[in-house]
């Protein structure tokens, strides 16, 4: 994520101001593609959490279904994180491949993951 800039005034600003500062900096300094990936990761995070809440409320009866659903969100999150790392222009350190190549890898990994998940879903 984008780094937080120190507040200008010497007095400690209220937390709400800090957060809004963080948000504006993030929106200003992060590329649109990275923001899209971030939104996708938030989406995965929420989905996984809600599945877990369901298990807490109801129980683990179709256990395979829960495991595969949760594992697919976790796996997709990991792949999205890798995509974000690889497509971030600031991380170009001697690596010589395009964000499109990273996206192709991302697609391939997701397809394999979904096949495994479907196999396990029961």
């Amino acid at each position: 994520m984008a780094s937080k800039k120190p507040a200008v005034s010497s007095a400690a600003p209220p937390p709400a101001a800090l957060l809004s500062q963080l948000w504006t900096n993030y929106r200003a300094e992060t590329g649109v593609r990275l923001q899209l990936v971030d939104a996708y990761m938030v989406f995965l995070l929420l989905t996984g959490i809600l599945q877990f809440v369901h298990v807490v409320l109801v129980g683990t009866f179709p256990y395979n279904a829960f495991i595969s659903g949760f594992a697919s969100t976790v796996g997709a999150f990991v792949f999205a994180a890798a995509l974000r790392v690889q497509t971030n222009p600031k991380n170009r350190q001697g690596r010589d491949f395009s964000p499109e190549r990273a996206f192709a890898d991302f697609i391939f990994c997701n397809l394999v993951l979904f096949l495994a998940v479907t196999n396990f879903i029961g």
């Binding site: 938030v42 929420l46 809600l50």
Partner: peptide, 8 residues
């Protein structure tokens, strides 16, 4: 569980 799509 599908509601995060809206968020996305």
């Amino acid at each position: 569980v599908l509601s995060p799509w809206f968020v996305l």
